[in-house]
Simulated assay, not measured.
Amino acid sequence: MFAPRLVVIEVTGTRPDRPEYHAKVQVLNGRVVTDGVSDGWNVMRIAAADVTPDELLWDTRHADAIVIVGGEDITPSFYGETTGYEGETAHFAAADEGQIAVVRRALAAGTPLLGICRGLQIINVALGGSIVQHIDEGIHKNEGVPIDEILSTHTVTLTTTSGLARGLGGTDIVVQSAHHQSVGRLGAGLVAAAVAPDGLIEALEHHTAPITGVQWHPEAPDAPADQLPRLLASLRGHVESSRRERELVAA
């Protein structure tokens, strides 16, 4: 039986200076791996900061699909800005470089790719877009609470013609998010696929390639239970469609 290869790319495997944050990230990332395995994927998990950008490209060269998950802010130089902004987190420049290269190769090769939170921002930056370095978190993040309570629940409206609307079964959904940055200028070929009540872009899609980013966390414990499985199923649909096309060409 065909078991497609899913690569889950996180930022780093260790954060000794921020153990509570790291533990929260591991819960979220672990859910992506667990759901992938449950759905029949052959899952590989890689921490981008723990390898060189070239090694990351090499290790992911045979991926049938890729998920880039959440984490720290992208190094500002990758989108033409500087450090010193409000809410700034640690940066992992090598991880940024490697993940950006993975997105660009996925676009060129037609590899299905999903970005979650930071992963959405990586997609946008990789394709020449910009990042709003600090937003009024408002509905997007709970402030001044323990890390386990940081995720905020709110609605988003999906574009009716988007792949996300088809994959998630509707246009108005409830999500969980925790971000202090957002999409600014959209990268080349990207279109907004969802907006929050305050007008911020909450998802994007490439207009021709199977590349999607969501700013929220479908892998969060309190997110609607079917969100992440539906997103992984959409990735799998792209993989199987591409596989059938190759088999027809070879026949």
Rank of each mutant, 00 (worst) to 15 (best):
F2Y: 15
P4L: 10
L6D: 01
V8R: 00
E10S: 12
E10A: 13
V11T: 13
T14W: 09
H22L: 11
A23V: 03
V25Y: 05
V27C: 05
V27Q: 13
V32F: 04
V32P: 04
T34E: 14
T34D: 11
G36W: 01
G36F: 02
V37L: 15
S38Q: 12
S38W: 02
N42M: 12
A47M: 03
A47E: 03
D50I: 01
W58K: 14
D59K: 13
D59N: 12
T60V: 15
R61P: 00
R61V: 07
H62S: 15
H62D: 15
I66L: 12
I68P: 00
G71T: 05
I74E: 01
T75N: 13
S77E: 15
S77P: 01
S77Y: 12
E81K: 12
E81I: 05
T82K: 14
T83P: 03
E88H: 10
A94T: 11
D96A: 06
V102R: 00
V102D: 00
R104M: 07
A106F: 01
L107N: 02
A109Q: 15
T111R: 08
T111I: 14
P112H: 05
L113R: 01
L114R: 05
L114F: 10
G119C: 09
L120K: 00
Q121R: 06
I122P: 00
N124A: 08
S130A: 10
I131A: 01
I131E: 00
I135M: 04
I135Q: 01
D136I: 10
D136S: 14
D136K: 13
E137H: 07
E137L: 07
K141Y: 11
G144D: 10
V145P: 11
V145H: 14
P146V: 09
I147T: 07
D148E: 15
D148T: 14
E149R: 14
I150D: 05
L151S: 08
S152H: 04
H154T: 04
H154F: 06
T159C: 06
T159I: 09
L164V: 02
A165R: 05
R166P: 00
G167L: 12
L168I: 08
G170M: 10
T171K: 05
D172C: 10
V174G: 06
S177P: 08
A178H: 05
Q181W: 05
V183Q: 02
R185S: 11
R185H: 09
L186T: 08
L186M: 11
G187N: 08
A188G: 07
G189P: 03
A192Y: 03
A193C: 08
P197E: 03
G199Q: 09
L200G: 00
I201S: 02
A203R: 05
A209G: 09
P210D: 07
T212H: 12
G213V: 06
V214E: 08
Q215A: 12
Q215E: 12
H217M: 10
H217L: 12
P218D: 02
P218Y: 01
A220G: 10
A220S: 14
A220L: 08
P221I: 10
P221K: 09
D222K: 15
D222W: 12
A225I: 13
Q227C: 11
A233Q: 13
L235G: 02
H238T: 06
H238E: 13
V239E: 04
S241L: 13
S242I: 04
E245P: 00
E247L: 15
L248A: 13
L248Y: 13
A250N: 11
A250H: 11
A250E: 12
A251Y: 08
A251V: 11
